[in-house]
């Protein structure tokens, strides 16, 4: 499936945030969205998800304009992984994951055995079956982030939209979450769109990169094309060196502060 954003401008009533953005990606690709604080990444995401109305422009799934789609139809194609937070009630983890099945249930339906099995399979895929019976409000932040990914996967979407999936996670959990994202994208079953504050993450798990810079600039391309020392300095206003690190067979670029 192909997701296309065409000349999208978004923002609030009298405060435009992002204007005239176009990008295209398909299932199996992973797109990393970079940009300094306050540049409108979250607003852009919310607009793609249909939580905010676009000021202008369209979003297409396989060439179909999604603006008229009912919520449920859209949710069956695009899943959302928000930043983790506390819900007011102490749900069981499995019950939280099963909520992802809503996109496939009618207005008066509630999940049945099939939905539970799908939820359990998703937990198994992410290697967190051991959390299934635990209480969502009592597990760690990293675990909760993985549970939210599981919930989005239970939607069986073609695309996953993740808002800073590694924010406020410790070093180990960040890498675990990134590894999962990598595996999901390379499995070819979903396309991943995520925001991050670390250009390293883009080198690590993105096939495409979009950078929203200051003054309404938008650059879209492969990580190697887009993430250069000069461009990082322009966007983030700090001196950066990009080095190639070799560890056995694995070669990867990393960014280090040049100061």
């Amino acid at each position: 499936m192909e997701l296309e954003v065409k000349n999208l401008s978004c923002g609030y009533l009298n405060r435009p945030v992002v204007s005239n953005v176009s990008l295209k990606m398909s299932t199996g690709e992973s797109l990393c969205l970079l940009g300094p604080n306050g540049v409108g990444k979250t607003t852009f995401f919310k607009t793609i998800l249909g939580l905010l109305k676009p000021r202008s422009g369209q979003i297409f799934l396989d060439g179909e304009d999604v603006s008229k789609w009912p919520r449920r139809k859209f949710a069956a194609k695009v899943g959302y992984v928000p930043q983790y937070h506390m819900p007011p009630f102490a749900f069981e983890v499995l019950d939280v994951v099963i909520m992802g099945r809503n996109a496939h249930l009618g207005s008066f339906a509630s999940p049945g055995k099939k939905d539970r099995i799908i939820a359990e399979q998703v937990l198994d895929t992410l290697n967190i079956s051991y959390l299934s019976k635990r209480v969502y409000t009592e597990i760690s932040g990293g675990e909760r982030q993985l549970v939210l990914i599981a919930r989005a996967l239970a939607q069986e979407p073609e695309f996953l939209v993740m808002d800073e999936p590694t924010a406020s996670l410790d070093f180990g959990n960040q890498i675990k979450v990134l590894n999962q994202i990598n595996q999901l994208a390379t499995s070819g079953k979903v396309g991943v769109i995520m925001t991050t504050h670390y250009p390293d993450h883009a080198f690590y798990c993105a096939s495409k990169v979009a950078v929203m810079g200051k003054g309404d600039t938008f650059v879209f391309g492969t990580p190697d094309e887009v993430i250069t020392e000069a461009y990082l300095q322009e966007v983030y206003d700090v001196k950066v060196k990009i080095i190639l690190v070799e560890n056995g067979d694995v070669k990867r670029k990393v960014c280090v502060s040049a100061v």
């Binding site: 919310k46 998800l49 249909g50 939580l51 009912p70 919520r71 449920r72 139809k73 859209f74 949710a75 069956a76 899943g79 959302y80 928000p82 819900p87 007011p88 009630f89 749900f91 019950d95 909520m99 992802g100 809503n102 996109a103 207005s107 008066f108 339906a109 509630s110 999940p111 919930r151 939607q155």
Partner: peptide, 23 residues
């Protein structure tokens, strides 16, 4: 009673509920 399960989804907040396909 018929729509009670959706209240679970609703308790995660409007945005998440919408992203999960709830009107």
């Amino acid at each position: 009673v018929l729509m009670r399960w959706k209240l679970n989804v609703m308790s995660f907040g409007d945005e998440e509920a919408q992203a999960l396909g709830v009107n």
